[in-house]
Simulated scan of single mutants.
Amino acid sequence: MNGAGSVPAQAPAQAPAQASAAACAGYVGLTFDDGPSGNAPALLTALKQSGLRATMFNTGQNAAANPAQVRAQVSAGMWVANHSYTHPHLTQLSQAQIDAEISRTQTAIGGAGGGTPKLFRPPYGETNATVKSVAAKYGLTQILWDVDSQDWNNASTDAIVQAAGRLTNGQIILMHDGPANTRAAIPRIAQGLAARGLCAGMISPQTGRAVAPS
């Protein structure tokens, strides 16, 4: 009886994954910078409730200060990435200072339980050959964005939803850990993506594009 009973119990669990994969005509990268802050739990809740996964570009100082939130990001199925330690203008720093910003963040995120990041986003999107070479030294792929939600500039919830509506297959949107308007936009972003057959994917370290989660 027990053996027979286990078969139908497993079948429904597999069906939703197959159905959702079939519904994905493409993948986009949802990214959130500057966390994990005090707003991180509410952001994770909003993402989980909407069935979305995202890449969290954490600063090293926030990861070190909030290790439980880094672990919560991983537990929620998010990907944790490097956003420097103190969020400086990296292009104004020496190579040694850039190295310290990136390496300390790798250590902080790893120490907090976030694994070893494969992706790096320079603060403000400011980069040059030196920044890219230091990131590459640590096995990091530099990731910028295709669409800027402008949530850092007090964009409204409607504007953030509209920005996400411009995403096409493989593209990446910039959002942030803190703004309340961003959290409010998440359910509508999820609805908009689903309506267009797009799913929230991971960012490939090889191509820097959003792809199906592996």
Score class of each variant (00 low, 15 high):
Ala4Leu: 14
Ala64His: 01
Asn181Phe: 01
Arg183Trp: 04
Gln73Lys: 13
Pro41Arg: 09
Ala184Cys: 02
Arg183Gln: 14
Arg53Met: 04
Thr182Ala: 12
Arg71Trp: 02
Ile189Arg: 01
Thr55Glu: 05
Ala210Arg: 06
Phe57Pro: 07
Ala63Gly: 03
Leu30His: 07
Leu44Ile: 13
Asn181Tyr: 00
Ile189Asp: 02
Ala21Pro: 03
Leu167Val: 10
Ala23Phe: 00
Leu93Met: 15
Ile143Leu: 09
Ala15Gln: 14
Ala96Arg: 14
Ala19Arg: 10
Arg53Ala: 12
His89Tyr: 09
Gly197Ala: 05
Ser133Trp: 03
Pro213Trp: 07
Ala185Trp: 01
Trp79Cys: 00
Leu44Arg: 08
Arg209Ser: 08
Ser149Gly: 04
Ser84Leu: 11
Ala108Glu: 03
Asn181Pro: 00
Ala4His: 03
Gly197Thr: 03
Gly35Ala: 09
Leu30Phe: 07
Ile203Asp: 05
Ala25Leu: 12
Cys199Gly: 07
Gln206Glu: 01
Pro205Phe: 04
Gly51Phe: 06
Leu167Pro: 08
Met56Lys: 11
Ala112Asp: 01
Gly5Pro: 00
Val134Lys: 05
Trp152His: 12
Ala180His: 09
Thr55Asp: 05
Val80Met: 09
Thr157Asn: 11
Ile98Asn: 02
Trp79Gln: 10
Gln14Gly: 15
Asp34Trp: 01
Phe120His: 04
Ala210Ser: 08
Leu119Lys: 00
Ala159Glu: 12
Val147Phe: 08
Tyr138Gln: 11
Gln73Trp: 09
Asn154Thr: 12
Gln142Arg: 14
Gly114Met: 02
Ser6Asp: 09
Ala23Tyr: 00
Ala136Asn: 08
Ser84Asp: 07
Gln162Val: 05
Ala96Asn: 13
Gly111Met: 06
Asn58Ser: 15
Ile203Gln: 05
Ser6Trp: 13
Leu30Asn: 06
Arg53Leu: 02
Thr141Arg: 15
Thr116Arg: 15
Asn153Trp: 08
His87Cys: 09
Pro16Val: 11
Thr105Ala: 07
His87Tyr: 06
Asn128His: 06
Ile143Val: 15
Ile172Asp: 05
Thr55His: 04
Gly35Arg: 03
Cys24Gln: 10
Gln206Val: 12
Ile189Tyr: 02
Glu101Ser: 09
Gly201Ile: 06
Thr130Ala: 09
Gln61His: 14
Thr157Pro: 11
Met202Gly: 10
Gln69Ile: 09
Ala19Tyr: 05
Asp151Trp: 07
Tyr138His: 15
Met1Cys: 00
Lys137Asp: 13
Val134Glu: 14
Asn2Ser: 13
Gln10Lys: 00
Ala25Phe: 00
Val7Cys: 05
Val80Ile: 15
Asn154Val: 03
Thr182Tyr: 08
Ser37Met: 11
Pro205Gln: 06
Trp152Phe: 14
Asn2Glu: 11
Ile173His: 08
Tyr124Pro: 02
Met56Asp: 07
Ser20Tyr: 02
His87Asn: 13
Thr31Ile: 11
Ala164Glu: 15
Leu93Trp: 12
Arg71Gly: 09
Val7Asp: 10
Ala159Val: 11
Arg121Asp: 11
Ala112Asn: 03
Asn62Ile: 00
Gly192Arg: 03
Ser149Trp: 04
Ala180Val: 15
Gln171Gly: 04
Ala185Tyr: 02
Ala23Val: 00
